[in-house]
Nucleic acid binder design. Structure first.
Lengths: 191, 191
DNA sequence: TTTATTATGTACTTTAAAGTACAGAATGTG
DNA sequence: CACATTCTGTACTTTAAAGTACATAATAAA
């Protein structure tokens, strides 16, 4: 009954994600996204709202991607230690070398002082809470695999800290072997 | 032989540091710094160069402050483990609660995609290299205090990762007890 | 006291990017 | 076909902030 959209919103979100991830929120203009996607500004505004709203949608998408993957990996059968190690190893391509330079979109956003919108903070907090919950649940469930006195809650949080640290330092493009060595060393806490 | 400066450059750098740290590079305008310091823009330009150059000076100052403190703490006599623990504990006020929200100026800058100037990257890399070197040197020197097979180099890097992780997650204002628990757990790697 | 020199403050220009007005195009329906 | 409806593209306005021109003020030296 009316003119249909000439683009797939999901494609645009994907393009926007790449640009925001690479250049950051501030340095990515809507003109950039228009140029890369071929979708003019009025259409972007109609489909996603203003720049903040667009970024929030992109970030939520990013979060969902990582959470979905974490859920799949951490639900696998086997020793919790091996599973969590496997999960961390999976981040190595994003924590080292060329690709590592952009770091993590979520952490980049969390550390960006100019982005202190309430919605954004909530999204990031929710993401961190969920991720930590996945780790905690797994460690609690498999608690019997560890030493007496093992604390699943603190350990889950420590893994979150290491994870964040690796992705924060990723901007320096460390060597993947070094990242792996850190993961291996930290994994010795799971005993 | 000429009109003297009416302000102390160091005072301005201190004010600029607070503003950049709180609001980030992009969101802090020179007009903000002018308003806070009482120094007009042409004077800022004459004294520090453009905004990027000013920020670089601020960041170097910040780095020097932390490095100086780390040198002092890590040179103290005593078991390396206790000394390094003390050093990490010293960050707790900056990793938790209200004050933690701004995180670390260096990490905030490293994760800011819009700040990919060469000079800036160099400054941050140099800072990280020096900090890690202080840790590594101490761990190597006191290597005899640890188990057979203890690797000072990897351990120094792991501590850097944890340090970065704590400061990246600081933006969520975690509880100081939780931060302390993570530090204590990680310290068990030094044995 | 005059002069050379550098700092300061006002007010300007420039630029980049967010956001929008509006005319016209593309569809489904009667 | 004609119409209601929503989308699209061009071109505009607005705003915020970086950077600067210029007249003036403050000092040290001669």
């Amino acid at each position: 009954m009316a003119r249909p959209r000439s683009f797939d919103p999901d494609d645009v979100l994907e393009i926007a994600r790449q640009m925001f991830w690479q250049k950051g929120f501030q340095a990515t203009s809507l003109d950039d996204i228009t140029a890369a996607s071929g979708v003019a500004k009025p259409s972007l505004y109609a489909a996603f709202g203003d720049k903040n709203a667009l970024f929030l949608k992109v970030l939520d998408r990013y979060h969902d991607g990582i959470l979905g993957w974490a859920e799949r990996v951490l639900a696998q059968p086997g020793p919790a230690r091996d599973i969590i190690r496997q999960w961390l190893i999976g981040f190595i391509p994003y924590c080292s070398g060329e690709k590592g330079q952009r770091g993590c979109l979520s952490i980049n956003s969390a550390t960006d002082g100019s982005l202190d919108q309430v919605e954004l903070r909530k999204s990031i907090e929710r993401y961190n809470r969920r991720l930590e919950e996945l780790l905690r649940t797994r460690l609690r469930t498999d608690r019997a695999q560890f030493r007496k006195g093992f604390d699943p809650d603190i350990t889950a949080h420590t893994i979150m800290v290491v994870h964040a640290g690796l992705l924060a330092l990723a901007h320096q493009r460390p060597d993947s072997k070094q990242v792996k060595a850190v993961i291996d060393q930290v994994m010795s806490l799971l005993a």
